[in-house]
C-alpha cells in the first residue's frame, strides 16, 4: 500500500508538504486586529469545491465509463477490505492519484501567486512601458485586418 510518510516539516522546509501546510499558514493562525494584514486577493482560489465527487451529467458519464473499465474479476478476488490485495491493485494508481491531486493544488497556488505577482509587476512597469502592450495589441489588430482583407 502506498503510504505517504508524514512530512517532517520541522525546520527542514521541504516543499513537498508546503502546499498542504500553506492553507494553514494563510487561513489559520493568530490574527491581531491592531496589525495590518497583507492582502490575499487571488488566494481565495484555494477555497472552492469542497466535494471531490460532484453530481453532474459529466461526472455520471465519467464514472459509468470508469466502471466499464474496472477489472471486476480483480475486484471480486480482492474482496475490498483485504488490504494486501487491494494494496496491490492500487499501488500504481494510488501514486498517480496522489500526485495528480497534489500537483493540481500546487498549480492552483502557483497560479494564484503568479497572478498576484503579475499584477504587481504590471503596476510597477506601468510608468515606463505603458504604451507597449497597447502597441502590441494594435499591431495584432492590424495583422488581423490584413488577413481579413486577403
Amino acid at each position: 500500500m502506498t503510504v505517504v510518510p508524514a512530512a517532517q516539516t520541522g525546520g527542514g522546509g521541504g516543499t513537498s508538504g508546503l502546499y498542504d501546510v500553506l492553507e494553514l499558514v494563510l487561513d489559520r493562525g493568530l490574527v491581531i486586529d491592531a496589525f495590518v494584514r497583507v492582502s490575499l486577493v487571488g488566494i481565495e482560489i484555494l477555497k472552492i469545491d469542497v466535494r471531490v465527487v460532484v453530481a453532474s451529467v459529466d461526472t455520471y458519464l465519467r464514472f459509468a465509463e470508469a466502471c466499464n473499465r474496472l477489472d471486476l474479476e480483480a475486484g471480486k478476488k480482492a474482496r475490498p477490505g483485504l488490504p494486501e490485495m487491494v494494496g496491490e491493485i492500487t499501488e500504481s494508481g494510488a501514486r498517480q492519484k496522489t500526485k495528480g491531486a497534489l500537483s493540481g493544488a500546487a498549480q492552483t497556488v502557483q497560479d494564484a501567486i503568479g497572478s498576484v505577482r503579475e499584477k504587481a509587476e504590471q503596476a510597477a512597469a506601468d510608468g515606463a512601458r505603458a504604451r507597449r502592450p497597447e502597441g502590441t495589441r494594435r499591431a495584432k489588430a492590424e495583422e488581423k485586418r490584413e488577413e481579413e482583407q486577403e
Binding site: G75, P80, I89
Partner: peptide
C-alpha cells in the same frame, strides 16, 4: 483512490 473505492462501491 478512485479505482480502489470503485471496487469497494461494487462490493
Amino acid at each position: 483512490n478512485e479505482e480502489a473505492v470503485l471496487h469497494r462501491v461494487m462490493a
